[in-house]
Design a protein around this nucleic acid. Structure first.
Length: 851
RNA sequence: GCCCGCGUGGUGGAAUGGUAGACACAGGGGACUUAAAAUCCCUAGGCAUAGCGCCGUGCCGGUUCGAGUCCGGCCGCGGGCACCA
């Protein structure tokens, strides 16, 4: 018998699949379709274990569904625009295009040996002009449909490099290259009107039954529907025609506890004061320092500036409140102005204590209610509390009831009106960068902003650009901007903003259904293939990518590019965990960590050492694989030494798919050993002959395995499927059954393993004389009659603790079971002649005797 | 700071509210071998132990005949926070 040689069998079967066109997706109206999609990768140049895990999971589903008779679409492409290509060009010279396409070629070459059942004929990259040209066509349609507009918005501005920075490029409030303090600056930007769909995107979440609850919850909170009161405080002696401040509050019930009014530094009133008062200007400038992220704003020290202006309380004209400019109030949300009620909001309380403002309780706990000191009293809105400064509704009511009553009261008395607001902001898609999809509009002095004619698409990126200076190369290109106005034919300039890469990834799933179509989509193809039946990707995309895709599908429907049924493009979503690894480090003379690759390290009896020098290394618990920590395992090395099936088997085993999996060398070796064992077993069984004992038992185990493995795959419990396959292997190995039964069992084993270890399975299938390719064989069905056990073992608990067990026929009536249980030695002893207080018999499960 | 998850032996993990630790890794013991590798078999949560037993799913409390699972509070770790993809 020869050895298990993945290096020989894997390329052999990959060639066979390719020759047979096994994975080419075919639109076959006579069969049900199944569309499996994994989030496509950014072409960094190297695949990593996270990719292997992600794509293997999708591959298991794709191969399994194919065996179940579905016409499967399982495509692959590249999310190819983005900053890293420009960074590479800046750091190492070269061109983003060459870098990106080079990386794609490298990664494709690394992925192919995995033996994924991908229809490579549909491959595309988002930086292909054929793709982004169609995206530009849709942009124009959406512009016509009123789904796109321009407005001012803030960006991170690096005042030294004179360029816009991504949030990632801001470190501790400073530009990553210049080190300059970043400022928030306003620019005119393009926006998608996603906020028009706030209600719709929120409500439609309820229909996404096969999405994880946590993702739906995150999206709900992100959209952030709230009902509140919009009202005005009248301003005393306001400057420049400002006679009122509109505020929005979700807690109008606390209006009697108000102690100040706060406005955003970007509020029109603040801007007015800025022009009149140097101190205000200095304060507002201070507020604009730092990055634009919500995190930066929320964690910054809360600062306020007393404008000296006063407003009147709407219920008492003698009651005046100070007006502060505060750095934590966002102009984007609500009206850009609030009233602060320190007793019931921690941030307002901190602010009030800092600036010596009054703290007035409006409600207290029903029992033991104490006045607020340094901790705001913020009970759940569903909890009943006692109002000590209420103005609407009964003295004792919940926050919810009080809010409703307050809104009603205010409306009746002409103080504001109830409004519904959403946290979701419009999607700013402008990027002041080169390596992205050009926004296909031109700026004409006569006609203004005009969309490019569709026949002139794609608006291509110019190749002759340089990255020696910061900023957008499109801006400083000598000729690219020059064009003729599509309307008047006069001289015009192209828009130099490109699109956010989230636009690229918001419709690629639709393009895969007809990747070469001359229009963005093909009606017949999207009708057949949409929706994506199973989408798989990282939890880090739970909000933005998935929400944008849901919006984009709706926008594509409104512009005629997708059918109504596809407005929720992903029927089922699965979010997989990361691949992690231990981190190895030594210390340099300054005690700074020096990281080491796993392959440079070995385990010895006395600990973990460097292979080269024997120096001891510190081992830090597993973390996400990252280049900087050097805790990376290159899939290419694993495939070369153990084969793709081993890598696939390992990433599926042990950890549940939604959780992180820790890569260990020992685990990979164990996976290889197991596959080699299965291979040897298949060879032995292929040569076996004659009768044996226990055929029935083996076939029962086989049907159990079919049932369990199938359930595992159906429920994304690949690790439990793998465990069942281990168990079935153990059973088969120990079985003394006859050759025919063992051959049958082994063939089923090959089929059950085929989605996970397709190459080995083909080899075994062929060895045992299976017909055709196992990839084309129908999925085995478990015989229900073979799954039924005749007797069951019932544990007996006494007061909830397991003390004994009895074996009874499966269908024994409850009364009989009770009698047997009461006759059990342990029970008799525990009862000591007395009667049980309670006797619980759960048929087929458990008996509990309460004494 | 805000939103969302996760936490079970030495390790990865299993477990429709019903026998906690399936399956595997590392470990221990044995078989085979001149020897090693490979392979095969046995063992294995902790404490105590001849045995009976007691404790145990991050911590504290609750619901239940029964809680890893449900509820409340804490601690720790991870993801997201709108220009990383």
């Amino acid at each position: 018998m020869s050895r298990f040689e993945p290096r020989e069998i894997e390329p052999k079967w990959q060639t066979a699949w390719e020759a047979a066109g096994t994975f080419t997706a075919r639109r076959d109206e006579t069969r049900p379709k199944y569309y499996v999609l994994e989030m496509f990768p950014y072409p960094s140049g190297r695949i990593h274990m996270g990719h292997v895990r992600n794509y293997t999971m999708g591959d298991v589903i794709a191969r399994y569904k194919s065996s179940c008779g579905f016409s499967v679409l399982h495509p692959m492409g590249w999310d190819a625009f983005g900053m890293p290509a420009e960074n590479a060009a800046m750091e190492r010279g070269g061109h983003p295009k060459a870098w990106t396409y080079g990386n794609i070629a490298d990664m494709r070459a690394q992925m192919k040996p995995l033996g994924l059942s991908i229809d490579w004929s549909r491959e595309f990259a988002t930086c292909d002009p054929e793709y982004y040209g169609q995206q530009q066509a849709m942009f124009i349609d959406m512009l016509d449909a009123g789904l796109v507009y321009r407005k001012n918005a803030v960006v991170n501005w690096d005042p030294v490099d004179m360029t816009v920075l991504a949030n990632e490029q801001v470190e501790d409030g400073r530009g990553w290259r210049s080190g300059a303090l970043v400022e928030r600056r306003e620019l005119t930007q393009w926006f998608f009107k996603i906020s028009d769909f706030s209600e719709e995107l929120l409500e439609a979440l309820d229909g996404l039954d096969d999405w994880p609850e946590k993702v739906k919850l995150m999206q709900r909170n992100w959209i952030g529907k709230s009902r509140g009161l919009q009202m005005a405080f009248s301003l005393i002696d306001g400057p420049g025609g400002h006679d009122r401040i509109e505020v929005y509050t979700t807690r109008p019930d606390t209006l009697m506890g108000a102690s100040f009014v706060g406005i955003s530094p970007d509020h029109p009133l603040a801007k007015q004061l800025e022009t009149q008062d140097e101190k205000v200007a200095a304060f507002c400038a201070e507020c604009r320092k730092g990055g634009t992220t919500e995190e930066a704003i929320e964690t910054a020290e809360k600062l306020g500036y007393d404008t000296g202006l006063r407003v009147r309380h709407p219920f008492d004209t003698a009651w005046e409140l100070p007006v502060y400019i505060a750095n934590f109030i966002l102009m984007d949300y609500g009206t850009g102005a609030i009233f602060g009620c320190p007793a019931h909001d921690q941030r307002d309380l901190d602010f009030a204590r800092k600036y010596g403002l009054p703290v007035t309780d409006t409600f207290v706990a029903l029992e033991g209610g104490k006045p607020v000191e340094n901790e705001a009293f913020v009970p759940p809105k569903t909890e009943k509390v006692r109002w000590v400064k209420g103005f609407a509704g009964p003295e004792i009511q919940t926050g919810e009831e009080a809010i409703d009553a307050a809104i009603r009261f205010c409306e009746e008395n002409g103080v504001g009106h109830g409004v519904t607001k959403f946290r979701l902001r419009d999607w700013g898609l402008s990027r002041q960068r080169y390596w992205g999809c050009p926004i296909p509009v031109v700026h004409c002095e006569a006609c203004g902003v005009v969309p490019e004619k569709k026949e002139n698409l794609p608006v291509r990126l110019p190749d002759d650009v340089s990255f020696d200076k910061p900023g957008n190369p499109l801006d400083r290109h000598p000729t690219w901007r020059d064009c003729a106005c599509p309307e008047c034919g006069g001289k015009a300039l192209r828009e130099t903003d490109t699109m956010d890469t989230f636009v690229d990834s918001s419709w690629y799933y639709a393009r895969f259904t007809a990747p070469r179509a001359a229009t963005p989509t093909d009606a017949a193809e999207v009708e057949y293939w949409m929706n994506v039946d199973q989408y798989i990707g990282g939890i880090e995309h739970a909000i933005l990518h998935l929400l944008y895709s849901r919006f984009f599908a709706r926008a594509m429907h409104l512009t005629g590019h997708l059918p109504k049924k596809a407005i929720e493009p992903f029927n089922a979503l699965f979010t997989q965990g990361m691949v992690t690894h231990e981190i190895y480090l030594t210390r340099d003379e300054n005690n700074r960590p020096v990281y080491h690759l796993p392959e440079d390290v070995e385990r010895r009896e006395d600990g973990v050492c460097l292979k080269a020098t024997g120096e001891k290394v510190e081992v830090i618990p597993s973390a996400k694989m990252s280049k900087s920590k050097k805790n990376v395992v290159d899939p290419v090395n694993i495939i070369e030494s153990f084969g793709a099936d081993t890598a696939r088997w390992f990433v599926l085993s042990d950890s549940p798919p939604e959780r992180d999996v820790e890569w260990t060398a020992a685990g990979a070796e164990a996976a290889y050993k197991h596959l080699a064992r299965v291979w040897r077993m298949a060879n032995e069984i292929a040569g076996a002959s004659g009768e044996g004992e226990g055929d029935e038992d083996l076939l029962r185990a086989m049907h159990k395995a079919i049932h369990d493995v199938t359930m595992g795959i159906e429920s994304f419990g690949f690790n439990t499927s793998v465990a069942k396959l281990y168990a079935f292997t153990n059973t088969l190995q120990k079985s003394k059954a006859g050759a025919a039964a063992r051959k049958q069992a082994m063939k089923v084993m090959a089929q059950l393993m085929a989605p996970m270890t397709p190459h080995l399975s083909e080899e075994i299938w062929a060895l045992l004389g299976g017909e055709g390719l196992v990839a084309n064989a129908p999925w085995p069905k478990a015989d229900a009659a073979m799954l039924v056990e005749d007797t069951v073992t019932l544990p007996i608990q006494i007061n909830g603790k397991r003390r004994s067990e009895i074996s009874v026929p499966k269908d024994m009536p409850k009364e009989e079971v009770e009698k047997l249980a009461l006759a059990d030695d342990a029970v008799v002893k525990a009862l000591a002649g007395g009667q049980p207080k309670k006797l619980i018999v759960v048929p087929g499960r458990i008996i509990n005797v309460v004494i």
